[in-house]
Protein backbone atom coordinates (compact mmCIF):
# COMPACT_ATOMS: atom_id res chain seq x y z
CA UNK A 1 0.00 0.00 0.00
CA UNK A 2 1.51 3.30 -1.01
CA UNK A 3 0.89 6.22 1.32
CA UNK A 4 -0.19 8.63 -1.39
CA UNK A 5 -2.66 6.14 -2.78
CA UNK A 6 -3.72 5.05 0.66
CA UNK A 7 -4.64 8.58 1.56
CA UNK A 8 -6.13 9.78 -1.69
CA UNK A 9 -6.95 6.76 -3.79
CA UNK A 10 -5.10 7.89 -6.87
CA UNK A 11 -2.69 10.45 -8.18
CA UNK A 12 -5.52 12.31 -9.87
CA UNK A 13 -7.52 12.54 -6.71
CA UNK A 14 -4.42 13.82 -4.97
CA UNK A 15 -4.08 16.41 -7.68
CA UNK A 16 -7.71 17.36 -7.26
CA UNK A 17 -7.27 17.63 -3.50
CA UNK A 18 -4.32 19.99 -3.96
CA UNK A 19 -6.24 22.01 -6.55
CA UNK A 20 -9.11 22.39 -4.15
CA UNK A 21 -6.81 23.08 -1.25
CA UNK A 22 -4.47 25.74 -2.55
CA UNK A 23 -5.69 26.59 -6.01
CA UNK A 24 -2.56 25.28 -7.71
CA UNK A 25 -1.87 22.65 -10.34
CA UNK A 26 -1.09 18.99 -9.63
CA UNK A 27 1.61 18.29 -7.06
CA UNK A 28 4.75 19.19 -8.83
CA UNK A 29 8.03 20.59 -7.79
CA UNK A 30 11.71 20.10 -7.51
CA UNK A 31 13.24 18.54 -4.42
CA UNK A 32 16.98 19.06 -3.96
CA UNK A 33 18.85 16.62 -1.75
CA UNK A 34 22.56 16.44 -0.99
CA UNK A 35 25.00 15.12 1.59
CA UNK A 36 26.48 11.81 2.71
CA UNK A 37 27.66 9.28 0.16
CA UNK A 38 26.70 6.55 2.65
CA UNK A 39 23.04 7.61 2.74
CA UNK A 40 22.95 8.45 -0.99
CA UNK A 41 21.99 4.93 -2.19
CA UNK A 42 19.04 4.78 0.23
CA UNK A 43 17.61 8.23 -0.53
CA UNK A 44 18.24 7.95 -4.26
CA UNK A 45 16.54 4.55 -4.36
CA UNK A 46 13.57 6.07 -2.51
CA UNK A 47 13.56 8.90 -5.07
CA UNK A 48 13.75 6.46 -7.99
CA UNK A 49 10.76 4.46 -6.75
CA UNK A 50 8.79 7.54 -5.73
CA UNK A 51 9.26 9.19 -9.14
CA UNK A 52 8.19 6.00 -10.91
CA UNK A 53 4.81 6.50 -9.19
CA UNK A 54 4.55 10.28 -9.21
CA UNK A 55 5.87 11.69 -12.42
CA UNK A 56 5.26 15.36 -11.66
CA UNK A 57 7.72 15.61 -8.79
CA UNK A 58 11.36 15.83 -9.75
CA UNK A 59 14.08 14.89 -7.28
CA UNK A 60 17.81 15.54 -7.64
CA UNK A 61 20.23 13.85 -5.26
CA UNK A 62 23.88 14.86 -4.98
CA UNK A 63 26.88 13.64 -3.02
CA UNK A 64 29.04 16.09 -1.12
CA UNK A 65 29.66 14.32 2.18
CA UNK A 66 27.73 14.78 5.41
CA UNK A 67 29.61 17.99 6.25
CA UNK A 68 29.24 19.40 2.74
CA UNK A 69 25.53 18.59 2.72
CA UNK A 70 25.03 20.26 6.11
CA UNK A 71 26.81 23.39 4.86
CA UNK A 72 24.43 23.59 1.87
CA UNK A 73 21.49 22.82 4.14
CA UNK A 74 22.52 25.68 6.43
CA UNK A 75 22.58 28.08 3.47
CA UNK A 76 19.12 26.96 2.42
CA UNK A 77 20.40 25.60 -0.91
CA UNK A 78 18.79 22.18 -0.46
CA UNK A 79 15.56 20.78 0.96
CA UNK A 80 16.83 17.55 2.48
CA UNK A 81 20.28 16.70 3.81
CA UNK A 82 21.57 13.11 3.92
CA UNK A 83 23.76 12.51 6.96
CA UNK A 84 25.70 9.53 8.26
CA UNK A 85 26.01 11.18 11.66
CA UNK A 86 23.73 13.46 13.64
CA UNK A 87 23.86 17.19 13.02
CA UNK A 88 26.57 18.93 15.07
CA UNK A 89 25.72 21.73 17.49
CA UNK A 90 27.59 24.30 15.44
CA UNK A 91 25.72 23.16 12.32
CA UNK A 92 22.45 23.59 14.23
CA UNK A 93 23.56 27.15 15.05
CA UNK A 94 24.24 27.87 11.37
CA UNK A 95 20.86 26.53 10.29
CA UNK A 96 19.05 28.56 12.95
CA UNK A 97 21.14 31.68 12.20
CA UNK A 98 19.83 31.49 8.63
CA UNK A 99 16.29 31.57 10.02
CA UNK A 100 15.70 27.92 9.17
CA UNK A 101 14.86 24.84 11.18
CA UNK A 102 15.05 21.10 10.58
CA UNK A 103 13.26 17.83 11.27
CA UNK A 104 15.64 15.01 12.13
CA UNK A 105 14.64 11.59 10.81
CA UNK A 106 16.68 8.43 11.52
CA UNK A 107 16.16 6.08 8.58
CA UNK A 108 18.56 3.13 8.79
CA UNK A 109 21.51 1.47 10.46
CA UNK A 110 24.84 0.87 8.83
CA UNK A 111 27.56 -1.38 10.14
CA UNK A 112 31.20 -0.39 9.86
CA UNK A 113 33.30 -3.42 9.00
CA UNK A 114 36.90 -3.74 10.13
CA UNK A 115 38.48 -5.77 7.35
CA UNK A 116 41.86 -7.42 6.80
CA UNK A 117 43.49 -9.38 4.02
CA UNK A 118 42.43 -13.06 3.86
CA UNK A 119 46.11 -14.00 4.33
CA UNK A 120 46.09 -12.40 7.77
CA UNK A 121 45.11 -15.73 9.36
CA UNK A 122 46.42 -14.65 12.76
CA UNK A 123 43.60 -12.21 13.40
CA UNK A 124 39.97 -13.20 13.86
CA UNK A 125 38.69 -10.85 16.55
CA UNK A 126 39.86 -7.49 17.87
CA UNK A 127 38.77 -5.60 20.94
CA UNK A 128 37.80 -1.94 20.83
CA UNK A 129 40.85 -1.30 23.01
CA UNK A 130 43.20 -2.90 20.48
CA UNK A 131 41.60 -0.89 17.67
CA UNK A 132 41.98 2.23 19.78
CA UNK A 133 45.71 1.61 20.25
CA UNK A 134 46.06 1.24 16.45
CA UNK A 135 44.11 4.37 15.55
CA UNK A 136 44.65 6.88 18.37
CA UNK A 137 46.62 10.06 17.64
CA UNK A 138 50.36 9.53 17.94
CA UNK A 139 49.95 5.74 17.91
CA UNK A 140 53.27 3.89 17.81
CA UNK A 141 51.62 0.66 16.63
CA UNK A 142 53.32 -0.13 13.32
CA UNK A 143 53.47 -3.91 13.46
CA UNK A 144 50.80 -6.50 14.20
CA UNK A 145 53.03 -7.65 17.07
CA UNK A 146 52.43 -4.29 18.78
CA UNK A 147 48.68 -4.98 18.75
CA UNK A 148 48.84 -8.33 20.52
CA UNK A 149 51.98 -10.17 21.61
CA UNK A 150 51.14 -13.43 19.80
CA UNK A 151 50.56 -11.72 16.44
CA UNK A 152 53.43 -11.99 13.94
CA UNK A 153 55.86 -9.16 13.39
CA UNK A 154 54.29 -8.00 10.11
CA UNK A 155 53.95 -4.32 9.17
CA UNK A 156 50.47 -2.95 9.87
CA UNK A 157 49.06 -0.56 7.26
CA UNK A 158 45.84 1.29 7.94
CA UNK A 159 43.15 2.38 5.47
CA UNK A 160 40.05 4.38 6.25
CA UNK A 161 37.43 6.89 5.22
CA UNK A 162 38.53 10.46 4.47
CA UNK A 163 38.42 12.97 7.31
CA UNK A 164 35.51 14.94 5.76
CA UNK A 165 33.17 11.97 5.98
CA UNK A 166 30.62 11.15 8.65
CA UNK A 167 32.06 7.63 8.56
CA UNK A 168 35.43 8.90 9.83
CA UNK A 169 33.71 11.02 12.48
CA UNK A 170 31.73 8.03 13.72
CA UNK A 171 34.63 5.57 13.67
CA UNK A 172 36.89 7.91 15.63
CA UNK A 173 34.12 8.69 18.14
CA UNK A 174 33.41 4.99 18.68
CA UNK A 175 36.98 3.69 18.68
CA UNK A 176 39.34 6.50 19.68
CA UNK A 177 36.75 8.04 21.99
CA UNK A 178 37.00 11.53 20.57
CA UNK A 179 35.31 12.48 17.32
CA UNK A 180 37.59 13.55 14.50
CA UNK A 181 40.90 12.60 16.09
CA UNK A 182 43.12 9.77 14.92
CA UNK A 183 46.65 9.13 13.80
CA UNK A 184 47.31 10.87 10.50
CA UNK A 185 49.45 8.26 8.77
CA UNK A 186 46.74 6.11 7.21
CA UNK A 187 45.60 5.86 3.61
CA UNK A 188 42.35 7.81 3.37
CA UNK A 189 39.80 7.57 0.57
CA UNK A 190 36.20 8.65 0.18
CA UNK A 191 35.72 5.75 -2.20
CA UNK A 192 35.18 2.51 -0.28
CA UNK A 193 36.14 0.49 -3.37
CA UNK A 194 39.64 1.98 -3.05
CA UNK A 195 39.81 0.74 0.55
CA UNK A 196 38.61 -2.75 -0.45
CA UNK A 197 41.21 -2.91 -3.22
CA UNK A 198 43.90 -1.69 -0.83
CA UNK A 199 43.18 -4.39 1.74
CA UNK A 200 42.78 -7.10 -0.91
CA UNK A 201 46.30 -6.42 -2.17
CA UNK A 202 48.18 -6.00 1.12
CA UNK A 203 48.54 -8.88 3.66
CA UNK A 204 49.34 -6.43 6.48
CA UNK A 205 46.43 -4.05 5.85
CA UNK A 206 43.47 -3.16 8.05
CA UNK A 207 40.60 -0.94 6.95
CA UNK A 208 37.13 0.17 7.99
CA UNK A 209 34.26 0.71 5.54
CA UNK A 210 30.52 0.20 5.14
CA UNK A 211 28.84 -3.19 5.46
CA UNK A 212 27.41 -3.00 1.92
CA UNK A 213 30.92 -2.85 0.48
CA UNK A 214 31.97 -5.86 2.57
CA UNK A 215 28.95 -7.86 1.40
CA UNK A 216 30.03 -7.28 -2.21
CA UNK A 217 33.70 -8.12 -1.62
CA UNK A 218 33.58 -10.91 0.97
CA UNK A 219 35.66 -13.06 -1.39
CA UNK A 220 38.48 -10.51 -1.43
CA UNK A 221 38.73 -9.36 2.18
CA UNK A 222 38.05 -10.85 5.62
CA UNK A 223 35.88 -9.17 8.23
CA UNK A 224 37.28 -9.08 11.76
CA UNK A 225 34.87 -9.83 14.62
CA UNK A 226 34.61 -7.05 17.14
CA UNK A 227 34.63 -7.37 20.92
CA UNK A 228 32.84 -4.31 22.24
CA UNK A 229 34.13 -4.97 25.75
CA UNK A 230 30.60 -5.13 27.24
CA UNK A 231 30.74 -8.86 27.91
CA UNK A 232 29.12 -9.73 24.59
CA UNK A 233 32.29 -11.35 23.27
CA UNK A 234 33.36 -11.29 19.64
CA UNK A 235 30.56 -10.38 17.20
CA UNK A 236 30.80 -10.69 13.42
CA UNK A 237 29.40 -7.83 11.32
CA UNK A 238 26.21 -9.08 9.66
CA UNK A 239 22.85 -7.50 8.84
CA UNK A 240 21.38 -9.42 11.80
CA UNK A 241 23.99 -8.45 14.39
CA UNK A 242 23.68 -4.79 13.35
CA UNK A 243 19.87 -4.92 13.46
CA UNK A 244 19.72 -6.60 16.88
CA UNK A 245 22.26 -4.17 18.30
CA UNK A 246 24.79 -6.89 19.18
CA UNK A 247 27.39 -5.48 16.82
CA UNK A 248 28.65 -2.61 18.91
CA UNK A 249 30.04 -0.03 18.88
CA UNK A 250 30.48 -0.02 15.08
CA UNK A 251 26.79 0.05 14.10
CA UNK A 252 25.46 3.55 13.59
CA UNK A 253 22.22 5.18 12.54
CA UNK A 254 21.85 7.08 9.27
CA UNK A 255 19.71 10.19 8.97
CA UNK A 256 17.89 12.55 6.69
CA UNK A 257 17.27 16.13 7.77
CA UNK A 258 14.27 17.90 6.25
CA UNK A 259 14.04 21.68 6.15
CA UNK A 260 11.03 22.57 8.27
CA UNK A 261 9.71 25.32 5.99
CA UNK A 262 9.84 22.88 3.07
CA UNK A 263 8.27 19.96 4.95
CA UNK A 264 4.83 21.50 4.43
CA UNK A 265 5.42 21.71 0.68
CA UNK A 266 3.13 19.07 -0.90
CA UNK A 267 5.95 17.60 -2.99
CA UNK A 268 8.45 17.34 -0.14
CA UNK A 269 5.78 16.03 2.23
CA UNK A 270 4.63 13.39 -0.26
CA UNK A 271 8.21 12.23 -0.86
CA UNK A 272 9.18 12.01 2.82
CA UNK A 273 5.97 10.13 3.70
CA UNK A 274 6.57 7.70 0.83
CA UNK A 275 10.19 7.27 1.96
CA UNK A 276 9.24 6.51 5.57
CA UNK A 277 6.32 4.24 4.69
CA UNK A 278 8.51 2.09 2.42
CA UNK A 279 11.71 2.50 4.42
CA UNK A 280 12.09 -1.18 5.36
CA UNK A 281 12.12 -2.43 1.77
CA UNK A 282 14.06 0.53 0.41
CA UNK A 283 16.75 0.29 3.10
CA UNK A 284 17.09 -3.46 2.66
CA UNK A 285 17.26 -3.22 -1.14
CA UNK A 286 19.98 -0.58 -0.79
CA UNK A 287 21.89 -3.11 1.35
CA UNK A 288 21.57 -1.31 4.63
CA UNK A 289 19.95 -2.41 7.87
CA UNK A 290 16.39 -1.18 8.48
CA UNK A 291 15.13 0.11 11.82
CA UNK A 292 12.26 -1.77 13.46
CA UNK A 293 8.67 -1.17 12.30
CA UNK A 294 7.97 0.37 15.67
CA UNK A 295 10.85 2.82 15.26
CA UNK A 296 9.70 3.80 11.77
CA UNK A 297 6.29 4.47 13.30
CA UNK A 298 7.90 6.83 15.79
CA UNK A 299 9.89 8.52 13.01
CA UNK A 300 6.72 9.03 10.94
CA UNK A 301 4.99 10.52 13.97
CA UNK A 302 7.94 12.86 14.44
CA UNK A 303 7.63 14.06 10.84
CA UNK A 304 3.86 14.44 11.03
CA UNK A 305 4.18 16.45 14.23
CA UNK A 306 6.91 18.58 12.56
CA UNK A 307 9.11 18.10 15.61
CA UNK A 308 12.32 20.05 15.18
CA UNK A 309 15.68 19.74 16.86
CA UNK A 310 18.22 16.94 17.28
CA UNK A 311 17.95 14.10 19.79
CA UNK A 312 21.58 13.17 19.59
CA UNK A 313 23.72 16.20 20.32
CA UNK A 314 26.46 15.10 18.02
CA UNK A 315 26.94 11.50 19.12
CA UNK A 316 25.17 8.25 18.35
CA UNK A 317 27.70 5.84 19.84
CA UNK A 318 25.70 3.26 21.76
CA UNK A 319 22.34 5.07 21.68
CA UNK A 320 18.99 3.34 21.18
CA UNK A 321 16.99 5.29 18.62
CA UNK A 322 13.54 4.11 19.66
CA UNK A 323 14.12 5.17 23.29
CA UNK A 324 15.25 8.62 22.21
CA UNK A 325 12.25 9.01 19.92
CA UNK A 326 9.93 8.00 22.73
CA UNK A 327 11.32 10.93 24.64
CA UNK A 328 13.62 9.21 27.09
CA UNK A 329 16.50 11.46 28.12
CA UNK A 330 19.56 10.92 25.98
CA UNK A 331 22.10 10.44 28.76
CA UNK A 332 20.43 7.39 30.29
CA UNK A 333 20.74 5.53 27.03
CA UNK A 334 24.21 6.75 26.23
CA UNK A 335 26.92 4.12 26.45
CA UNK A 336 29.32 4.23 29.37
CA UNK A 337 32.26 5.08 27.14
Amino acid sequence: MRPVRAAFGSRWMLAAAVLAGCGRGPVEGLIKIDGSSTVFPITALAAERFMADTSDIRIAVGISGTGGGMAKFGRGEIDISNASRPIKDKEVDKVRAAGLDFIELPIAYDGLVVAVNPEATWVDCLTVDELKRMWEPGSKVNSWKDVRADFPDRPLRLYGAGTDSGTYDYFTAAIVGEEGTSRADFTASEDDNVLVTGVAGDPGALAFFGLAYYEESADKVKAVRIDGGKGGGCVAPTFESVETGQYQPLARPEFVYVRKDRATDPAVGAFVRYYLAHARTIVRDAQYVPLSDETYGLVRARFDAQTTGSLFHGSTVGVKIADLLRGMPADTTRSAR
Binding site: D34, A47, M51, A60, V61, G62, I63, G68
Partner: peptide, 26 residues
Protein backbone atom coordinates in the same frame (compact mmCIF):
# COMPACT_ATOMS: atom_id res chain seq x y z
CA UNK B 1 28.19 20.20 -7.07
CA UNK B 2 26.36 18.75 -10.01
CA UNK B 3 23.78 16.24 -8.84
CA UNK B 4 24.45 12.55 -9.26
CA UNK B 5 21.01 11.01 -9.16
CA UNK B 6 18.65 12.77 -11.54
CA UNK B 7 15.80 10.93 -13.21
CA UNK B 8 14.60 13.78 -15.39
CA UNK B 9 15.99 15.93 -18.17
CA UNK B 10 16.43 19.67 -17.65
CA UNK B 11 13.40 21.69 -18.69
CA UNK B 12 15.01 25.10 -18.32
CA UNK B 13 18.43 26.67 -17.99
CA UNK B 14 18.00 26.92 -14.24
CA UNK B 15 17.22 23.24 -13.69
CA UNK B 16 19.66 20.93 -11.98
CA UNK B 17 21.56 18.58 -14.24
CA UNK B 18 23.98 15.72 -14.34
CA UNK B 19 26.54 14.81 -16.99
CA UNK B 20 28.31 11.72 -18.29
CA UNK B 21 31.56 12.19 -16.33
CA UNK B 22 29.59 12.62 -13.09
CA UNK B 23 27.55 9.51 -13.79
CA UNK B 24 30.70 7.52 -14.53
CA UNK B 25 32.35 8.80 -11.37
CA UNK B 26 29.31 7.78 -9.33
Amino acid sequence: GGFVFIAFTPGSLLDPFTALPLQIFN
